[in-house]
Design a protein around this nucleic acid. Structure first.
Length: 863
DNA sequence: GTAGGGTTAG
């Protein structure tokens, strides 16, 4: 129709200014800006109206570059732009996200004195928003004398695009409640609804839904679609579907949004049904490239490779595989399903490979278990002269962290610093995680402290990183700082706190965090619950652990395994077995880790027969191949029970080469049962296999010390010194009223040390009356008896017990943590003390728990 | 001034 009118005009009144301006506009509105350009180029005379019409036509059709070029042409031709030209050009600058250009145009606007024009200001607000300079948007907004709805909409949009969710809600409320007589329109609602959608703000979304109904805007197709999308993203698929079915008018977006809803849920059937229905809608409704991208999330699980291939077939038949984004998404999706060959086929089948395409490939390899290929692909990419962007860098850092390649990581870190990407939060967090994985928490902290902005993810990464590097004090410290900074902790930081409390046996803090977790509903997460169970157990409260476990309604294999393992550490072998059987009855299949817990439980409790039965059942009943750790448990169990020959035979029958853990277990057994012949052979093997571990030398030295071979002891200790190895000092600590007190062996530096030694001597007198005899065999040094007795008196666990009795009220249970194994003498003394003072004393050593009560220990003196 | 998509972090 437009063309016919054009033909008529060409014949009759070609050079009329008004008519040719209208023609240019008409073609632009019909989505054919090339025709507008044709008209423009064939004009004999031009005025500003026609330049403006074409620039505006370009921006209407998202041809930002062309709009800006035409504007430059206009200036070169010594024309002066007017208040109609500027909004269009500024919009184009925003479209290009080109701040420098936008600022230049803004400067020109000021020079011409047009900077109080509302239309220009509204475009400026939007432009600065799109260029990430939201503070400049605010400045312009504040300066406008009279603001209209568009000014507010632009502001809301800018806040939302810059991730300032709260600010966009505040601006939205201003529109509703403000002095101006403003009513939200379609644009307002369509801008604010995605803010609700992106963060699951269902309540706010529903309020806006009600508002849309009252304003009579809910039947507008764009509003309706934004509402459907909001319900989908908030997880209310059925509500979304009701709106979708009720829609008065629909377009492709409506269908795509609904399909995306089913797809995100992993609902294969629902997704494909809707896709089929969409095709049956006929000519009016066509699937497009975005439809494909909306179906994709459904196929991202390992098991959905078939659906993914089917979808690729559909894509191919409809010619969408040429869409760059679709192709990139398939590369990433195939990689996620582990189908690297298909990913690479799609990738190398593409006509043009942009940096994004390379990112899809490199990211696919980095995330899904082939970090080496990620690095190789990067080399190939750079050899083609392509520069990495921050997505590429992020994936490379991930690959380095999987490879634990600190050196490559540092090279990339250098690149990041030189290119000023260090401020990007994604890159910062990726760097931080790299250093954490490479066990360089200090480096990680430097990156963390250097971040311009810290978000929840960066706090979590740093806190969880400390926990993974076994730095519990740092976890607690940073957690407190997080709260000072008013960052609301999430389930990940909470889990790290439980792990830290478990490492420290810090019961009091652990309980506080438990209250917090209950209040915030974090206990519903399986990994949080497992960490609570662990915290109570490691703080000596195994009954608390069981109570948490029983109350937890989403038990998974991990929680069962944790509970079984904790029973083992507490020497409650029968309980562990009982729970293991219950777990099987409830339909859970044990894995390798479950068996480590179970076998350790049998070992600690001396349940050799049961242990052997479960060990053989691993392969026979559960098809789990025993690994080195399982053999180590068995050797430990058999050795401690005195079956050294059986243990030796088991090692000989292993198909895998035994490691230092296994030889170490056998060596401990040799010491307990004073088997020097075997012990010496094993010592040799152990020190050959792993000569850099201090513990191994200590084991060997203790073997000799136990039978008084002091020359050999000196030889081994000398060797250890020569190697520059030292073992941790013997330490104990006790939690009194939430504060942790540390004790070293023979510690005289404590403020109350005189009082402590006195208390212990009084206790000693009391326990001597009921049969305590100092067990000087535990002193593995070449000294005379009296000196040995004195050394025994200074053992850190005795000091901790004395301190606990001094500082706590009658009846309080003492919970003590020892960093190495408790010695025989302290074990005996603790039993007797528990009897004379009528207190429960719980000692956690580096292997297991001892609950001393009324002269007995839960381990049955078997440890 | 405006709705739907993919690639990086705990």
């Amino acid at each position: 129709m437009g063309r016919k009118v054009h033909d008529f005009i060409s014949k009759n009144c070609n050079n009329d200014f008004v008519i040719s301006t209208r023609l240019i506009t008409m073609y632009a509105m019909c989505g054919v800006p090339l025709e507008s350009r044709f008209v423009f180029d064939h004009l004999e005379r031009r005025n500003l109206y026609q330049w403006n019409a074409l620039i505006s036509g370009y921006t209407r059709n998202d041809l930002w570059g062309e709009a800006v070029l035409l504007f430059v042409e206009l200036l070169v031709g010594e024309n002066t732009p007017d208040n109609y030209t500027f909004p269009c050009v500024i919009k184009a600058c925003g479209g290009l996200s080109c701040l420098v250009l936008g600022q230049a145009v803004h400067g020109m606007l000021i020079k011409l004195g047009l900077d109080s024009d509302m239309y220009a200001c509204n475009s400026l607000i939007a432009m600065y928003g799109k260029c990430g300079c939201i503070s400049d948007s605010v400045k312009v907004f504040d300066k406008i004398a009279v603001r209209n709805l568009v000014s507010w909409n632009a502001m809301i949009c800018g806040f939302s695009e810059n991730g300032l969710k709260e600010e966009s809600f505040i601006a939205f409320r201003e529109v509703l409640m403000g002095e101006g007589d403003l009513r939200p329109d379609v644009a307002t609602l369509v801008t604010i609804l995605p803010v609700c959608a992106s963060d699951g703000e269902l309540d706010m979304g529903m309020v806006i839904h009600g508002l849309a109904v009252r304003l009579g805007l809910d039947h507008e197709v764009m509003v309706n679609n934004a509402l459907i999308d909001m319900y989908v993203k908030c997880g209310c698929i059925s509500d979304a579907r009701i709106l979708f079915d009720k829609s008065v008018s629909q377009n492709e977006v409506s269908w795509n949004v609904m399909i995306n809803g089913y797809s995100r849920e992993g609902n294969v059937y629902g997704t494909f049904c809707l896709l089929r229905e969409m095709q049956m809608e006929g000519e009016t409704m066509r699937a497009n490239a975005i439809t494909i991208l909306n179906v994709l999330p459904m196929c991202l699980e390992q098991s959905q490779l078939r659906s993914l291939k089917e979808l690729y077939g559909y894509t191919f038949r409809n010619g969408f595989e040429y869409d760059e984004m679709v192709a990139n998404a398939f590369v990433a999706a195939y990689a996620k399903c582990g189908a690297f060959t298909s990913a690479s086929n799609v990738f190398y089948g593409m006509e043009i490979r942009t940096v994004s395409s390379w990112n899809a490939l490199i990211g696919g390899y980095a995330q899904n278990g082939d970090p080496r290929m990620a690095m190789e692909s990067f080399v190939e990419m750079t050899s083609l002269g392509l520069d990495p962007d921050w997505f590429t860098i992020g994936s490379l850092l991930l690959a380095c962290s999987h490879l634990k390649s600190l050196n490559d990581g540092k090279v990339i870190h250098g690149f990041v610093v030189r290119n000023g990407l260090g401020v990007d939060s994604f890159i910062g967090i990726s760097l931080l995680s790299l250093y954490i994985r490479c066990r360089e928490p200090l480096h990680a902290r430097i990156v963390f402290d250097g971040m311009e902005e810290r978000n929840l993810v960066s706090w979590n990464a740093m806190i969880a990183g400390y926990s993974q590097n076994e730095l519990p004090y740092s976890v607690i410290d940073l957690f407190c700082k997080m709260q000072q900074d008013r960052i609301q902790p999430s389930e990940i930081a909470i889990m790290s706190m439980f792990t830290a409390c478990a490492q420290l046996s810090a019961l009091r803090i652990g309980k506080e965090v438990h209250c917090f977790a209950l209040k915030e509903n974090f206990v519903e997460y399986d990994f949080v619950s497992s960490s609570i169970i662990d915290m109570y157990a490691k703080s000596g409260c195994i009954e608390h652990s069981r109570r948490v476990f029983d109350k937890f309604s989403f038990k998974d294999l991990v929680s069962w395994t944790v509970m079984i393992t904790e029973y083992g550490i507490h020497g409650r072998g029968e309980k562990a077995i009982e729970l293991f059987e219950k777990m099987k009855r409830e339909g859970f299949n044990p894995d390798g880790l479950t068996f480590i817990g179970l076998l350790m439980a049998c070992s600690h409790a001396g349940l050799v027969e049961e242990g052997l039965k479960y060990f053989s059942g691993m392969l026979e009943e559960h098809n789990i191949e025993p690994k080195l750790e399982h053999f180590a448990c068995m050797v430990d169990m058999l050795g401690r029970a005195g079956h050294l020959d059986y243990a030796t035979r088991l090692i000989e029958e292993m198909t895998e080469e035994p490691d230092s853990g296994i030889w170490g277990a056998l060596l401990s057994a040799c010491r307990i049962h004073s088997d020097m012949d075997l012990g010496e052979k094993v010592s040799k093997k152990l020190l050959e296999l792993d000569p850099n571990q201090a513990e191994n030398y200590v084991l060997v030295s203790n073997l000799f010390a136990g039978s008084g071979r002091w020359d050999d002891v000196r030889r081994v200790r000398g060797k250890m010194k020569e190697m520059g190895l030292s073992k941790d000092a013997r330490r104990s600590w006790i939690d009194v009223d939430g504060k942790v007190y540390n004790f070293l062996i023979g510690d005289d530096k404590l403020p109350e040390s005189e009082k402590l030694h006195e208390t212990w001597r009084e206790l000693e007198q009391k326990i001597v009356r009921i049969g305590y005899i100092p067990d000087t065999v535990s002193v593995l040094h070449e000294l005379d008896e009296e000196e040995k007795v004195n050394i025994l008196r200074g053992h850190s666990e005795k000091l901790a017990i004395a301190y606990g009795l001094l500082k706590t009220t009658k009846g309080t249970t003492l919970r003590i943590y020892k960093n190495l194994r408790i010695c025989g003498d302290c074990h005996n003394a603790a039993k007797l003390v528990s009897k004379v003072v009528h207190r429960e004393i719980i000692v956690r050593d580096n292997k297991c728990f001892h609950h001393f009560r009324e002269g007995q220990c839960s381990c049955g003196d078997y440890w």
